[in-house]
Amino acid sequence: MSALAMKERPQVATAIEPLAFETRDLSKVFHIGRKWYAGGQPLRAVDGVSLSLRRGEVLAIVGESGCGKTTLSRMMLGLQPPSSGEIFVGGEPLTNVDRKVFARRVQPVFQDPYSSLNPRKTIGEIIRDPLLIHNIGTAKEQVAEVEAMMERVGLARRQIHSYPSQLSGGQRQRVAIARALIIKPEIIICDEPTSALDVSVQAQILNLLQSLREQMNLTYLFISHDLSVVEYMSDYVAVMYLGRIVEAGPTSEVMNAPRHPYTRALMKSILTPEPGLGLPDIHLGRGFPDPLNPPSGCRFHPRCIDAMDKCSSIVPRTLTDGEKIIECHLHDPEMAKA
């Protein structure tokens, strides 16, 4: 089984071990400038994304800003209803799962720890809140649980009465992680959990996430634009471009032998610590296309160095090869024939 489930994927696989998380053909369309008298312009933020995640795996989604990563994560958290497509948690469709039951399975860690903690609450109150919502344990047990969780994520117990404004960015992110883990979910959706942090703190938070994963048998959906973070964290990676997944597969294969021209450009964009080399030339100069008016055919063709004539007219098919998928005419044997 791959991190990515195709529609054709045999259902037997799910019968053996239910997937922790699955989306099928998920789309989200926003209507920009909609008024009651006019429909507005459709913006397809997420366009037919199918992916799946087994217990204990880490799936990373990478892509530029504006490619739909955050919208995808919001839908998978049940915070935004999808325009079409389905989400399954443990084999059950999300629409059938009660919000509270869902919350005990899936929890988020957000990007900005300065915005994800209520400034009027103490650290203890913030971490305890999910226990109160789900009415787990007595007051004493809840406080004990909060203290144990604070220790686990590397916060000092005396900080239980401090306010978020008294903590550093890294400490705040630890609080956000503690709040997510306190009700013992199976899946954590991390939306760029380190991108608002200092580089030195990033490593600490990533190590914390890794060790918590092993201790608590967690499944991560890890959203990032930082490829080195993805390489370090994930088992599978999916590359997203303008709302679609253009290439996916096991991290080592995608990172070492990228096939899609966009993935190749992304790999080139990783900065080396070597001074004097300058910025890498990645041939993506023409800028991110207007998502309100996406390019015809293959959405990547205006920026693609290998673009052919048919790329601007024919939408590429989704090709599956074992665990890997790709959407590109260069790798489509039928296109090569034509």
Binding site: R74, L77, G78, L79, R99, K100, F102, A103, R104, V106, Q107, P108, F110, Q111, D112, S115, S116, L117, N118, D129, P130, I133, H134, A176, R179, A180, I183
Partner: peptide, 10 residues
């Protein structure tokens, strides 16, 4: 995001 977190917590 703290409102989102609260919603996601149910």
């Amino acid at each position: 995001e703290f409102i989102m977190s609260s919603k996601a917590a149910g």
